[in-house]
């Protein structure tokens, strides 16, 4: 008879409590805005704020553009490195890890120096220009996650043979990437995309130093000015992250031709005979 794994169960319970108790405390606190009753008043308050909607929309759009840009850079790069330059893969891997090593503040100050007032390309002097810099910054932040996800996706399929198969059928390299490689690493791109989204949505340093009306600086500002609303925002941010993770899982495990969600059987009412 198998022994009950007491030690591992205990470790799981302690770890779960370590994670869940503060979360529960935050959630509980976010419900106590109105004295004496538990309510969603703090959440209502947040949703009624125009700044919340505006900053969330701004960050969501910036994140989505960063994801598209990241995918357009990473997919062909990872493909080419795997296909033609396998020896430089460690170098590319190292380069994509740099955003985890170099703090975003360094990157932003670099931007300010290169694209400042006296630059040949003074992007920081206009709002659209600064937005472009923010998106590029988010794209750079996404590199470690995007590259690894896409590279793993490519490792799972034999891209060299698939490329040769497509070429033997007359496909150009671009068509091969578009119709064969891209669709087959789509779930990997989605995984990288959801990670990127959850990271850049609440990003503070870049948005704040570039003075952009993003969600990260809004969260910090709320934390300084209010008590209950930041707790509600923290819970919502967790919700967005978890939803991203769940969607990532869903896309990563889906096979071609499979429905995203199982078909719901349709019920036809039976005719009742009198």
């Amino acid at each position: 008879m198998k022994r009950f794994p007491a030690v591992s169960t205990l470790i799981v319970i302690v770890a779960a409590l370590y994670f869940l108790v503060p979360l529960y405390a935050t959630f509980d606190f976010s419900l106590r805005m109105e004295r004496g009753v538990l309510s969603f008043a703090a959440y209502r308050d947040v949703f009624q704020s125009d700044t919340f909607i505006a900053t969330l929309t701004f960050s969501a759009i910036a994140s989505l553009v960063a994801i598209v840009l990241g995918a357009l850079i990473i997919v062909p790069t990872a493909y080419w490195v795997r296909l033609k330059l396998p020896k430089v893969r460690p170098l590319v891997e190292f380069l994509t890890l740099l955003p985890l090593i170099i703090p975003p503040v360094v990157l932003v100050f670099g931007y300010m120096r290169i694209y400042g007032n006296d630059s040949f390309l003074p992007l920081t002097t206009t709002d659209p220009g600064t937005n472009v810099l923010l998106v590029i910054g988010y794209t750079i932040l996404s590199l470690p996650y995007m590259f690894r996800a896409v590279d793993n996706g490519m490792a799972a399929i034999d891209i060299a043979t698939l490329t040769e198969a497509a070429e033997s059928l007359g496909a150009s390299r671009m068509r091969t990437i578009r119709t064969v490689i891209f669709p087959n690493v789509r779930s990997a791109i989605m995984s990288g995309a959801f990670l990127t989204f959850s990271i850049s949505l609440g990003e503070f340093v870049m948005a704040s130093l570039l003075n952009r009306p993003a969600f990260g600086p809004y969260l910090v500002q709320m934390g300084q000015d209010y008590a209950y609303q930041p707790a509600a925002l923290a819970i919502m941010a967790f919700g967005v992250t978890w939803a991203s993770m769940a969607l990532m899982q869903l896309f990563a495990t889906r096979k071609p031709g499979q429905r995203l969600f199982p078909r719901i059987p349709s019920f036809t009412p039976r005719s009742v005979k009198p």
């Binding site: 399929i157 698939l162 040769e164 198969a165 033997s168 150009s172 064969v180 669709p183 071609p256 031709g257």
Partner: peptide, 29 residues
């Protein structure tokens, strides 16, 4: 280049496109 040679190739590892069904695989070329 390979894509201009009008060659048909069958590989040891099949190399069917995983994102396409049988019809689309055969229709690809």
């Amino acid at each position: 280049p390979a894509n201009k040679r009008r060659i048909g190739m069958v590989f040891q590892a099949y190399a069917l496109f995983p994102n396409m069904n049988v019809y689309d695989n055969v229709a690809f070329g």
